[in-house]
Amino acid sequence: MIRGVRGATTVKHNEQNEIIAESHKLLKDIIKYNQIEADDVASVYFTVTEDLNDTFPAKSLRKIEGWTYVPVMCMREIPVPGSLQKCIRVMVTICTDKAQKDIHHIYHNDAVQLRPDLKS
């Protein structure tokens, strides 16, 4: 079965190193808490708010050993007035036998406010 694993984080600055570092931390926790192997990943999608354009957060995935062939793509979030700024969201689609309730969605930094019901 295919399941989606969600996550999000924020950065303080529109700066390449910070965007990649925070995206990397987020991915590492998603992988760890869901025991994900690269071969079980169908795809990874990142979105960023319109105030982040210094780099692609997908570059963070390439820093993870064994994830070279995982398909990854970046897109821009819908600019909803009043929404969380400097936010990076990710959807990792995996092949798994886990039930939906057993998936651990991960939220870091100011992004915890997006899903307070899913505290990690």
Rank of each mutant, 00 (worst) to 15 (best):
Q16H: 12
M75F: 13
K101G: 12
T96H: 03
K59E: 15
S83K: 07
H24A: 09
D51N: 08
V44E: 01
H105F: 07
E22D: 05
I78S: 11
K32R: 13
V41R: 00
A21R: 13
E50D: 15
E22G: 05
V48M: 12
Q85K: 15
Q35K: 14
K25P: 03
I31L: 03
I88S: 05
L26W: 02
G66N: 07
I2F: 10
Q16T: 13
L52Q: 00
E77Y: 03
H24P: 03
F56M: 12
D54K: 15
V48A: 10
C95P: 06
I88N: 06
T55F: 11
T55L: 04
M91K: 09
A58D: 09
R3L: 08
K32W: 06
D117N: 14
S43M: 13
P79F: 01
A111I: 04
G4N: 14
L114K: 06
D102C: 04
D29K: 15
N14E: 04
K98F: 06
K32F: 11
A8F: 02
D102V: 03
K59T: 13
I94Q: 03
V80H: 04
S60G: 12
Y33N: 10
Q100L: 14
M75S: 14
E18H: 00
A21Q: 12
A8M: 06
L84V: 02
Q16N: 07
D97V: 12
T96F: 05
K28T: 10
V90A: 07
N109W: 03
S83C: 08
S43A: 13
T47E: 12
K98E: 09
V70W: 00
D97N: 11
V5D: 01
M91A: 11
D102S: 08
Q113C: 09
D110C: 05
I31A: 00
K32H: 11
R6P: 03
V90N: 09
I103L: 10
I88H: 07
D117P: 09
T9I: 04
P81R: 05
M91G: 09
H13D: 13
M1A: 11
M75H: 11
E22C: 08
Y45N: 11
K119A: 14
H24I: 06
N109R: 15
D54Q: 15
Q100K: 15
V80C: 05
V44N: 01
K101I: 15
T68V: 12
L61N: 01
R62C: 08
F46K: 08
A38W: 02
D54C: 11
M73G: 11
A111L: 04
P79Q: 01
P71D: 00
K32M: 10
F46Y: 13
D39C: 05
K86E: 03
G66H: 10
T47W: 08
A111D: 02
Y45P: 00
P79R: 01
T10P: 06
P81A: 07
R76I: 13
Q113E: 11
I20F: 10
T49H: 06
C74A: 15
T93A: 09
Y107I: 06
K25L: 06
F46C: 08
C74V: 15
G7F: 06
E18C: 01
M73I: 13
H105E: 12
L118D: 06
H13F: 12
I19K: 06
P81Q: 06
A111E: 02
T9R: 10
S83A: 12
